[in-house]
Write a protein that binds this DNA or RNA. Sequence first.
DNA 1: GGCTCTAACCTAAAGCCCCTAGGAAGAGCG
DNA 2: CGCTCTTCCTAGGGGCTTTAGGTTAGAGCC
Lengths: 194, 194
Amino acid sequence: MPRAGLTVERVVAAAADLADEVGFDGVTLSALARRFGVKDASLYSHVRSLRDLRSRMALLAGAEMIDRIAVAVAGRSGKEALVAFAGAYREYALAHPGRYAATQIRVDQSLVADSPALRRTAEITYGMLRAYDLDEPDLTDAVRLLRAAFHGYCALEAGGGFGAPRDVQQSWDRAVDALHVTLEQWPRTKERGD
Amino acid sequence: MPRAGLTVERVVAAAADLADEVGFDGVTLSALARRFGVKDASLYSHVRSLRDLRSRMALLAGAEMIDRIAVAVAGRSGKEALVAFAGAYREYALAHPGRYAATQIRVDQSLVADSPALRRTAEITYGMLRAYDLDEPDLTDAVRLLRAAFHGYCALEAGGGFGAPRDVQQSWDRAVDALHVTLEQWPRTKERGD
DNA sequence: GGCTCTAACCTAAAGCCCCTAGGAAGAGCG
DNA sequence: CGCTCTTCCTAGGGGCTTTAGGTTAGAGCC
């Protein structure tokens, strides 16, 4: 009987593909084993548990996503960078709903420690805001708002939360325009205030 | 053998409490039955399926939430209303994480049809923005951005997504301030443009 | 080609969950 | 009291996760 030739990488990649097809919650070790033509228990040689598999999917998707974003923002700054970042973000989230959902779970700290993707994400995000010339704590506050807006938008859109007939792409472009204004007009923390 | 005296309402309410305790995904018909001292199958007299239960939880939570928000914004307008809306929103999401998660699922259209909560939510949301004097399609775009920002913020915060040492409450207050500015400075659609 | 050894993969089984079908027993009503 | 409706039950099928333990394919080495 020939072997399927599984490795952690192949298992996680297949899980990510499956997630995009049937949704993050539809990724089950049984379904994955079925796809490989293998018994459920066999996957435990490559992955510690379902939780472990999900964490690995999250890291994979997070790394993929920040790579796309990095390419998009390269060589741009200010509003151009913001638009590119936002576009790449939403594009990834919509093209890979299962992978994107994976990026939103809480990940085992043991795995997260040696993942450069997170540091990269922070670097690129803060770098994108350089042109707006914000100092801490405003910078962190702005990053949080941006992340929230981007994530919330994609989550609501993917979940069918936008019922109005208004075209979502146009709405999104407007939202990004508005966020650009927000960053320019950011209500800065006063020297000794608050 | 004394009866537990279940009704749809009691079952759904208990499910919502359970969700706040163990998380939305932890709400299982088995766990719920255990809590009532009843067998799993008994719950099917009150609820069609797990999916049905979840949909009902979503409607319950949605109604509760918009009630809190309505109280908060009553008698306020402009920035005051925005701050009150935002505060009530986040407070509910953090105090009732399971219920809040329920509000984000896709709900069976059959149940949603006769729920006044959704219409109420739209009315209150659009009403809150009246002072900013936006016309369509800007109004819808602004509502979408606000919903996205609020939801994204609560989702990220509840999911432990904010790692920086910066206090989240202060960050949130700042974000709401910034969104107020965003609404005031909204990049309006030109008469015949775009 | 044989040998060894480390995987990769298997069977078996326990435990939890969803859901259906059909039966029994409370509670209210005539 | 007897009727009926609903609540709750037992029984059972099927899916998923996970552990424990046994085989065997296949790479590397003589």
